[in-house]
Design a binder for these strands. Structure first.
Lengths: 382, 382
DNA sequence: CTGATTTCGTTAGGAAATTAACTAACCAAG
DNA sequence: CTTGGTTAGTTAATTTCCTAACGAAATCAG
């Protein structure tokens, strides 16, 4: 099916502001919109009338309070349109189509898919309401600003994978790191709700960090903030740090390799991957448990390094290994020993976090595309 | 002398905006103010008239272009008032009084002063123009939000030192970490001008980091961001990190102690402090030079840890040891080997950086106190 | 010196949003 | 069923700021 990219006439400034808060709230009465947008009742009235006229908003029902006149409830209209989020993983492809209020309209996930474009096409086919406003693609790669061509993946193979997704021409596409997306999901709908600053520590095949500060993702000068596999390791008197030393040590592959090497016949059948190792440890296997505990300490040291630099107040653990609750006590203990007082929580969003966070970003950019305007910022000096 | 704290009537919104850009520019014509504030010529005219009426602005002269009518130049007026910045160091006290355009009106630094309040009083005595709008005190301590009582130093001794400074009652006082202040100075008037993100690495008696991201200081959840003395150290297979291990190793005292221990009679007279050590190395002393080079590598590892987390793009070295140019090549080499491509620069502001940065903060808060308003923020989604 | 050109600053009219006051709708107590 | 209290929404007057046009002051060319 065809996807419009051209929008209707730009809403006026006040109508745009009302649209933005309506998208954030999902449904709201006019008094609520006035409060949220910081506008007066008459202004909201005319703004709502304008939005209804262009079908950017629509009556949704009536709200009855305990006392007083009942209020008209509004929601986004069909012209508001949709956005697309893609989690382009190495072993899976997750795609979501959302309305600008964040509602999931269509979702599909495929594993070991050789053609992510098929998954994208299937989801696009289910999105019928209004123009496609924006798309965000989450990649397991550094997303860096490439000058004129916008943000691009650092690795050429990833860049071509994005280019062959078959995203409709004319739709603004944003590339973002997958760990940063997962961090955004934890911020908005997970374990870090309401935080001003926190870190999402992903431990799985590799190790990565998503930093949220001031309610925004911190990307660094070249998009490589959070690439903590590059922490100096080993580090101490008599040890020269080697490049990528920590990546080598903290990744899932290396963990399993060490386990296999230390395994003897008396230990029974050796685990083939991290999932099996954690299952054995959960079942009480002594050697498996000792490896899990040692790994938890190692993750705790990484967390301590992060707290030393950033003091995030909260670290959310995610990823194939990090999400396992068996890690939590060990990580907490090592962090308490070495670092600042910092909460440690398991991730609350899980597998779908990356695509959920990408969808959050896409919604924000879609609202921006409609209103052409500014999200209000807190007025603090410096 | 007495210091007013009560301000005159609040300027209107447009007059406040004009006042803010005038303070930022120092001197400006009305067309320049219109451009900077994003207001129209008639609005600026009425705003300037209002500011002149309340003595917040004053005619300063006339600007002649190559062609066309000459323009009236304005500057801040006497009612704009002043701000105070204090660098409350462990071995010195630096105090600055500034106008809201950043002009230094009075400055005094004392060393080994048992009564910093005397220095504060002397500078306050030289400030005669208008009310004291704000004060910022830089302390060698964590500055954390203490709930109702605002931001306070984490260490009680530092808190009482601040409380006994004799700052005029009623003036809003802000506590800030001294490394963060030095970072702000490098951002606004030093080696990091125009950067969106960078880090200031202070190496001296201890080691600390100031993080600037999005043009603002990153303070962390409890004001302890940048306390990198808590990085896990030593760290590697067979080594348990110990709390404060890096502080122990990277500080100036520990460096001199190691040097003294390794010194033999054949090496000549041993250096008593870091300054002497660097002087010997500069003169070609082989053993001194090897210690300096090893220390540079160590600082390079700290810098690598910072780049792994934050990707700042630039690290500015400062502090008693860090400011020494002999360190730069060694730090660059180790960072190139281990970390992301990152510039390393020596600090450009030096000793006075802390009080200069505190003054920047105080000026921003002073302007905020006059206008009650918002510095414009960039409108970017998330 | 005079006129053309350019830029500064003001005046006049209009658009957008606010405050204040009023009308409309809804509930519940008497 | 009426009346009082409360909240929703509209109307009217005012404020604020913009655009457009005009007058004022400066430089430069002849």
């Amino acid at each position: 099916m065809e996807h419009d990219v051209a929008a209707g006439p730009r809403p006026s400034a006040s109508a745009g502001a009302v649209f933005a808060v309506l998208a954030g709230a999902g449904r709201a009465t006019r008094p609520q919109l006035a409060h949220l947008a910081g506008l007066s009742k008459p202004t909201v009235s005319s703004a709502v009338a304008e939005l209804e006229g262009t079908r950017l908003a629509a009556r949704s029902g009536t709200a009855h309070g305990a006392t007083g006149r009942s209020a008209a409830v509004y929601r986004l209209g069909p012209a508001a349109g949709t956005v697309l989020a893609v989690d382009l993983g190495s072993t899976h492809t997750a795609v979501r189509g959302c309305a600008l209020d964040g509602t999931v309209l269509a979702a599909r996930t495929t594993y070991g898919d050789p053609r992510p474009a098929d998954t994208v096409r299937a989801v696009l086919g289910e999105l019928s309401t209004g123009p496609l406003r924006a798309a965000v693609v989450a990649v397991p790669d550094i997303a860096r600003d490439a000058g004129g061509s916008g943000v691009r993946p650092a690795t050429p193979a990833v860049a071509t994978a994005v280019d062959t997704l078959g995203l409709p021409a004319g739709v603004p596409v944003r590339i973002e790191n997958n760990v940063n997306c997962a961090a955004l999901a934890e911020l908005h709908e997970g374990a870090a709700r309401g935080r001003d600053i926190f870190c999402y520590l992903q431990v799985g095949h590799g190790i990565g960090l998503g930093i949220v500060a001031g309610g925004r993702v911190l990307r660094g000068a070249s998009g490589a903030a959070g690439e903590i596999a590059r922490l100096p390791y080993p580090w101490g008197s008599g040890h020269e740090p080697v490049p990528e030393g920590l990546e080598e040590y903290a990744g899932a592959g290396s963990l399993v390799r060490r386990v296999t090497a230390a395994w003897t016949a008396a230990d029974g059948p050796a685990p083939h991957d991290a999932v099996e190792l954690f299952a054995l440890a959960w079942g009480g296997h002594a050697k498996a448990r000792s490896f899990v505990e040692e790994h938890a300490r190692e993750v705790g040291r990484v967390a301590a390094a992060v707290t030393a630099v950033l003091d995030p107040g909260l670290i959310v653990l995610g990823g194939g290994i990090g999400a396992n609750p068996q890690l939590l006590p060990g990580v907490r203990a090592e962090l308490d020993r070495l670092g600042l007082p910092t909460e440690v929580a398991g991730c609350a969003v899980g597998e779908s976090g990356t695509v959920a966070g990408a969808a959050r970003l896409a919604v924000a950019r879609g609202i921006h595309a409609v209103t052409g305007a500014l999200v209000p910022q807190p007025p603090v000096p410096r």
